[in-house]
Design a protein around this nucleic acid. Structure first.
Lengths: 163, 163
DNA sequence: CTTCGATATTTTATATTTCAAATAATAAGA
DNA sequence: TCTTATTATTTGAAATATAAAATATCGAAG
């Protein structure tokens, strides 16, 4: 049996850890397991269909919204990954011709990365599939629930960001 | 500047990607960014205070609830990581004396891992700090919001698990 | 009892990740 | 100008991750 098959069947029992714990702990574990389930499926699908990894997709999504490109530091902030992380990822995408990397004329320390033409058109395909998948994963969730989650997660996010 | 400092200051702008997109997409990005913010802080705190990584903490949390131990396959399902992933992690924890690994008498293919005495008492300390941190991160969130999130996330999780 | 498919884990290859330290360039002040 | 602190990125080491292939054992069908 392949590992991916095992993962697909995972019962997502993660949150069971704190069955008797405080409400906040249980909420955190539910949040985590929910996110894990969704992201695992998205990752798997993008890889199967397009042989694209999730970090690569995420990077391209950021650049897609910034036609003029982003500095690496700004990119790492938006992706919420550490800076050193991007070096290799960008390198690989440059090799594949999906991303362009150029020195910042304003600041010789900095580099600006942006999507190439090929990168932009490939991303459009990836994004379409990603949207399809998210819609199908959230299919059984009503609009009121989505609305409520948007608001409540905003509150939670704000609280966690303050701390 | 260290990378961790940069990460701590990240504006969590991840979800801005789909500003004009469908509600489901925006929800997914908000869910992801919220989870990222919380887990980054927990990881950082556990590392700073106890020099423990998040996967190690997670593994110990699973074993803490199962005094008789778990087979590796069951453990990988609960942690939602691939099977091969655990080999090295368990090995390291065994080296540190926090986890015991023994052959399953019922099935010579299988191994059972459980917390050692030292592992159990260390985990108790970690868990306490983890709880403190989660409570502080969720401090500005009211009980009604938490209650609503529990229910709505359950719905979302169920939907994503079905697919 | 033997074969054969299923299961449990490890191994291998590659990618990603954090953290810390190094490198390089900017900026600001004495 | 000459530090000195800050900022932008890279590098390097160790850990974690997936996926696929390999190994070993189990269990059931003949």
């Amino acid at each position: 049996m392949s590992d991916s098959a095992a993962l697909a069947e995972a019962p997502a029992d993660l949150e069971a850890v704190a069955r008797g714990g405080k409400a906040e702990l249980r909420l955190w574990l539910r949040l985590l397991s929910t996110t894990n389930i969704v992201s695992a499926q998205i990752r798997r699908r993008l890889r199967e269909k397009f042989d694209v990894t999730l970090p690569a997709f995420d990077l391209m999504a950021q650049l897609d919204r910034e036609p003029k490109g982003l500095r690496l530091g700004e990119l790492s902030k938006r992706m919420m990954v550490t800076n050193g992380n991007l070096t290799g990822l960008v390198e690989r995408l440059v090799q594949e011709g999906l991303v362009l990397r150029a020195a910042d004329p304003q600041d010789r320390r900095a580099f600006i990365v942006r999507l190439s033409k090929a990168g932009r058109s490939k991303f459009a395909v990836y994004a379409k599939e990603n949207e399809r998948l998210v819609l199908s994963l959230f299919d059984n969730v009503g609009p009121e629930t989505i609305e409520a989650l948007m608001g409540n997660l905003a509150e939670l996010k704000a609280s966690a960001s303050r701390a």
